[in-house]
Simulated assay, not measured.
Amino acid sequence: MNQIENTVIQLLSLLKQYNNGQIYHQIDILKEILDVINSNESDESKKERVKGLIDNLYPVRGGLTDFHIWNEDEKERIKVNKSLSELNDKLWYLSKN
């Protein structure tokens, strides 16, 4: 759970910084994941709830994989979107293992 928590914290920080007003739902889901991880629920319950919440971040259309950060500076835009993509991939991978 620690790796998921760390990844969610990093992703949440990035999304809050570059929120264009279209990803409030995903930000709320990430906050809820942190709430579940830090709750008093059993580890098995936490694992199931977190997995379901992560699945909700990546629907067929309109999820975090469809979100891209725009920045006038091309190098910065590439760097930030690469970080976003890596964090998304890591969170998805961690939720499946």
Rank of each mutant, 00 (worst) to 15 (best):
Ile54Gly: 02
Ile54Val: 05
Asp55Ile: 11
Asp55Leu: 08
Asp55Gln: 14
Asp55Thr: 10
Asp55Phe: 08
Asp55His: 06
Asn56His: 06
Asn56Ala: 14
Tyr58Cys: 05
Tyr58Asp: 04
Tyr58Ser: 00
Tyr58Phe: 15
Tyr58Asn: 00
Pro59Leu: 07
Val60Phe: 14
Arg61Phe: 09
Gly62Cys: 14
Gly62His: 15
Gly62Asn: 13
Gly62Leu: 15
Gly63Thr: 00
Gly63Tyr: 04
Gly63Asp: 05
Leu64Glu: 00
Leu64Thr: 02
Thr65Ser: 15
Thr65Gln: 06
Thr65Val: 07
Asp66Ile: 02
Phe67Ser: 00
Phe67His: 14
Phe67Gln: 11
Phe67Gly: 07
His68Pro: 04
His68Ser: 13
His68Ile: 07
Ile69Ser: 03
Ile69Thr: 02
Trp70Gly: 09
Trp70Gln: 05
Asn71Ala: 10
Asn71Met: 05
Asn71Cys: 09
Asn71Phe: 05
Asn71His: 13
Asn71Glu: 03
Asn71Ser: 07
Glu72Thr: 09
Glu72Cys: 12
Asp73Ile: 05
Asp73Phe: 01
Asp73Gln: 01
Asp73Glu: 01
Glu74Arg: 02
Glu74Gln: 05
Lys75Phe: 14
Lys75Val: 13
Lys75Gln: 12
Lys75Ile: 14
Lys75Leu: 12
Glu76Pro: 01
Glu76Gly: 06
Glu76Gln: 12
Arg77Asn: 15
Arg77Asp: 11
Arg77Ile: 08
Arg77Trp: 06
Arg77Lys: 15
Ile78Gly: 12
Ile78Ser: 11
Ile78His: 15
Lys79Phe: 08
Lys79Ala: 09
Lys79Gln: 12
Lys79Ser: 07
Lys79Arg: 10
Lys79Pro: 05
Val80Lys: 14
Val80Met: 12
Val80Asp: 05
Val80Trp: 14
Asn81Ser: 10
Asn81Arg: 01
Asn81Gly: 06
Lys82Tyr: 15
Lys82Phe: 13
Lys82Asn: 13
Ser83Lys: 01
Ser83Cys: 02
Ser83Val: 01
Ser83Pro: 00
Leu84Asp: 08
Leu84Thr: 07
Leu84Gly: 00
Ser85Asp: 13
Ser85Gly: 13
Ser85His: 13
Ser85Met: 12
Glu86Met: 07
Glu86Trp: 00
Glu86Ile: 07
Glu86His: 09
Glu86Ser: 08
Leu87Glu: 10
Leu87Asn: 09
Leu87Phe: 03
Leu87Arg: 04
Asn88Val: 09
Asp89Ser: 12
Asp89Glu: 09
